Computed example of a mutant assay.
Amino acid sequence: MKADIDNFLNYLVVEKGFSGNTREAYHNDLSQLADFAEKCLSNRNAQHLWDNFNRQDMLSYLLDLKERKYAVTTVVRKLAAAKSFFSFQVDENKVRQNPTENIESPKVGKPLPGAISVSQVKLLLEQPTKTSAPEAKRDRAMLELLYASGMRVSELINLDIEDLDCNEAQVRCFGKGRKERIVPIYPQAARAAGEYINEIRHRLLRDESEKALFLNRRGERLTRQGLWQILKEYARQAGLSDMVTPHTLRHSFATHMLNGGADLRSVQELLGHANISTTQIYTHLTSEHIRKAYDSAHPRAKSNPR
Score class of each variant (00 low, 15 high):
E162V: 07
E162K: 12
D163M: 09
D163S: 05
D163V: 02
L164W: 07
L164G: 10
L164S: 08
D165R: 08
C166Q: 13
C166G: 07
N167Q: 14
N167T: 11
E168K: 11
E168T: 05
E168N: 14
A169C: 15
A169V: 02
V171R: 05
R172S: 03
C173V: 05
C173M: 03
C173L: 08
C173G: 02
F174P: 08
F174M: 12
G175P: 00
G175R: 01
G175C: 00
K176T: 03
G177D: 03
G177Q: 02
G177K: 03
G177A: 01
R178I: 01
R178P: 06
K179Q: 07
K179I: 03
R181K: 11
R181C: 11
R181M: 09
I182A: 05
V183L: 14
P184D: 15
P184W: 09
P184A: 04
I185V: 15
I185P: 10
Y186N: 06
P187R: 07
Q188N: 11
A189R: 11
A189M: 12
A189K: 06
A190W: 14
A190M: 02
A190T: 01
R191Q: 12
A192E: 05
A192M: 01
A193T: 03
A193Q: 01
E195G: 03
E195F: 04
E195T: 01
